[in-house]
């Protein structure tokens, strides 16, 4: 199986503080990969490095075999990587439909067009309708995103992330702040929308992680201390000591 994303000795410093300390990780295409670790381990920072939000201090990141280090977020997105955020990051003043349609425009080649009428873009509109249906927000089509419930906003966040058809999807704590029922719905949604794609996920809810992930990497103090299948991670003593304790059993 070819590698979708590969991190080679990735480091990140903020001033004199080392946040990410030489992370090596290779994630094959089509794998659902979870990154777990205690608070402050550097999980979100790692996501920000992969998606181009922060520049690397050292090392290299390859997306489908090509280096994306030093590229801007939009350039990385155009190469097939899309991400969601820990804190909901949507277009609050736009409707649900407009949010999703904005996310499909570039991938369908409309780019900076000011000669196409949005209403006439059948492919973009159809794709937006399909994504809304897949995330369960069809009934909220014309509702302003800012007034959606928290769970609906999280679903929309996922919708925006997948709408462009990226092959590599990064989800940053997709179920954070959700109730049990909402979390169960979110897990099903993630399972559905990540079908056939490479999914990398930061998540604190171990139930979600062990339910969804094909493989788990454990990040502690900016270093990957273990990267293995879920059942092996459960039994890994170093992981238990550093993070899981007895809760994961």
């Amino acid at each position: 199986m070819s590698t979708a994303i590969e991190l080679k000795a990735v480091t990140k410093n903020f001033g004199n503080t080392e946040i990410i300390r030489g992370v090596d990780l290779a994630i094959p295409r089509g794998e659902r990969h979870a990154v777990i670790g205690p608070n402050g381990a550097g999980k979100s920072t790692l996501f920000n490095l992969i998606s181009g939000r922060y520049p690397l201090s050292g090392g290299d990141i390859l997306l489908n075999g090509e280096s994306v280090s030093g590229l801007k977020p939009f350039e990385i997105n155009r190469r097939g990587l899309s991400r969601s955020f820990q804190i909901t990051n949507i277009f609050q003043r736009m409707s649900v439909f407009e949010n999703v349609r904005c996310a499909v425009l570039w991938s369908l080649g409309y780019k900076y067009s000011f000669w196409h009428r949005l209403g006439g873009l059948k492919d973009a509109n159809l794709r937006a309708e399909e994504v809304m249906e897949s995330i369960g927000l069809k009934a909220r089509r014309d509702t302003s995103a800012g007034v959606l419930s928290y769970a609906e906003q999280r679903a929309l966040e996922i919708g925006i992330t997948i709408a462009g058809g990226a092959e590599v999807i990064l989800l940053d704590e997709p179920t954070a702040g959700m109730s049990r029922t909402e979390t169960a719905d979110a897990v099903e949604l993630i399972r559905k929308v990540s079908q056939g794609k490479t999914l990398i996920m930061v998540e604190h809810d171990m139930g979600v992680v062990f339910d969804l992930a094909d493989k788990i990497s454990v990040l502690v103090y900016g270093e990957v201390i273990a990267s293995d299948k879920p059942q092996n991670i459960r039994g890994n003593k170093a992981v238990q000591e550093a993070y899981l304790g007895t809760e994961a059993h």
Binding site: S51, K72, P73, F74, N77, R78, S82, R83, N89, I90, F91, Q92, R93, M94, C102, A103, L105, W106, S107, I160, A163, G164
Partner: peptide, 12 residues
């Protein structure tokens, strides 16, 4: 409304 999100859907 949200320049950061716009960048992450492919727009400069």
């Amino acid at each position: 409304d949200n320049p950061e999100r716009a960048e992450f859907v492919g727009y400069d």
